[in-house]
Amino acid sequence: MGPLRKKAVPASVLILVAVVFSAWDAELHFGDVTDIGNSFDFLSGMWPLDFSMADHTLEETLITVEMAFLGTVAGLAVALPLSFLAARNTSPGPVVCNGVRSFLTLLRSIPELVLALIFVPTFGLEPLTVIVAIFLHNVAVLGKLLAELVEAADPGPREAVASTGARDVLVALYGIVPQIFPNILSHYFYRLEVGVRSSLLFGAIGAGGIGDVLFLHFKTFEYAAMAVDILAIMVLIWLLDILGAFFRAKVI
């Protein structure tokens, strides 16, 4: 306890100073808390829920799912072969391995929203822009995650398949993929969920989907309709979670 207590005092002082400085520098106005009633007004404006535009909400929710699905599925299809090139134990050589790894890291360092903005001049404010952004981002993220799975796979079945004189692509497909398949599914469904949430964000730039509708309802003070949008998103995320668990249980 002695040494801990000795360091606890300067550490606490340091944290306290940092908190006070940050709050001062960011010009926080704690007095504004008296306006909390406004937030309650906002929330109460959501009630009773306005289902008059629910048809449109559902249509756009479906668009959101479709955008996330197309982007992540295409991302997975490209990421899977890339992950075998990036994994140290299956890569044809160090040049390919480091090259693919560097490419994936570079791609991952570009925020999704920036990727979308880059393609707005090409595809316009359309779902395709969002799909391409989600696709590129997921190539990078899934490529890295799957490469780690490949590296952690048991080398035994690989040796066995290789010992028959099978080609490298078959050694990977039969010796590794079945081993890591449940984990591929887990990663995929998580990325699909993230894809759904990020296509909400893309709504902010007006590229379609439920995010678009939500921002529109917010800006036009249709809080009761917006509440229905939020509800749709929550149910959607929840359903995806169940679906992921279902498929994983099927293959494990």
Binding site: G156, P157, E159, A160, V161, S163, Q179, F181, V251
Partner: peptide, 14 residues
């Protein structure tokens, strides 16, 4: 050349 192993090394999910 055929080969067999101590831990069998089958493809377990297939």
């Amino acid at each position: 050349m055929g080969m067999i192993f101590q831990q069998f090394q089958l493809i377990s999910r297939l």
